[in-house]
Computed example of a mutant assay.
Amino acid sequence: MLDALKSVLRKTSIHVCLVNTGGCNGCDIEVLALLSPRYDLEQYGIYVHQNPREADVILVTGAVTEQWRDKLQRIHRKAPEPKIVVALGNCPISGDVFNQEGGSVYAPVSDFIPVDAEVPGCPPRPSEILEAILAVAPGAIAERGRKK
């Protein structure tokens, strides 16, 4: 019974896994703002959790540190097809202030996993994050529905 209900909900909702690979957490705070009544992310059928095995969208925040290179690739492999990755903020896109000569920060994140959308900013506004998710995720949901 629970599996049947879960299957129905998964076909109509977007599940987002937030992955912080090292940084200041500014982007993470903006994602949390999306859960507030002002933005009410769940009204769009978007749910944030930490399980990559059930994620439609992986939101990557923070600069990729040496410790996260392999972990990020493993998380990406665990996500079901079709996988959508959104690089959130300047850090995963360019390394921003953490990308120093001789440092252990690796940018862009697209060097390690394929990225479908980038949301620049330090940090980007919650409305920009929501727009990026809504721009890329519905196509993945529709594709998953056709495969089943």
Rank of each mutant, 00 (worst) to 15 (best):
R69V: 15
Q100I: 01
G102L: 15
S94Y: 01
L72C: 07
C91S: 13
N51D: 13
H49R: 07
F112S: 11
R53A: 09
P52Q: 07
F112A: 06
L34Y: 11
I75C: 08
G89F: 01
E54M: 14
G102E: 15
E118K: 11
G95C: 07
A87N: 09
C24T: 03
L72V: 06
Y39S: 09
G102W: 15
C27V: 07
S104Q: 15
G45T: 02
G89A: 06
W68P: 01
F98M: 01
V115I: 07
A117G: 09
K71V: 12
T65C: 11
D96R: 07
R77T: 14
P126E: 05
V48Y: 02
K78T: 13
N25I: 00
S127F: 10
R125Y: 04
Q50W: 13
L72I: 08
L35S: 14
C27I: 02
P124C: 12
A63C: 10
D116R: 00
A87L: 02
G23V: 01
V48C: 05
P114T: 11
I113R: 00
V119F: 03
R53D: 08
V60A: 05
C24R: 04
I46W: 11
V115S: 02
E42T: 13
V105W: 11
I75G: 03
Y47W: 10
P120Y: 03
N99S: 14
D70S: 05
I46P: 11
G26P: 08
G62W: 08
V64G: 00
V60Q: 08
D40A: 08
V85Y: 04
A79I: 05
H49D: 09
V105C: 12
R38K: 05
K71R: 11
H76A: 10
E81P: 06
E101Y: 13
G103W: 11
D111W: 04
N25E: 03
P82G: 03
L59S: 10
A79R: 09
E118N: 11
L88D: 04
P126C: 04
G102R: 10
S110F: 05
C27L: 09
G45N: 02
V48R: 00
I75F: 02
C91E: 07
K83L: 03
P80Q: 02
Q50F: 14
A117Y: 14
L34V: 06
I29Y: 09
Q73M: 15
R38H: 12
I46M: 09
Y44K: 13
G121S: 04
T61Q: 00
E118I: 05
W68K: 14
P126S: 07
C122A: 13
S110L: 05
G45K: 06
G121H: 06
N99M: 14
Q73T: 15
N99K: 15
V57W: 06
A55W: 00
C122R: 08
G121T: 04
D111P: 05
N25M: 00
V105Q: 14
S36G: 11
K78C: 14
A79S: 14
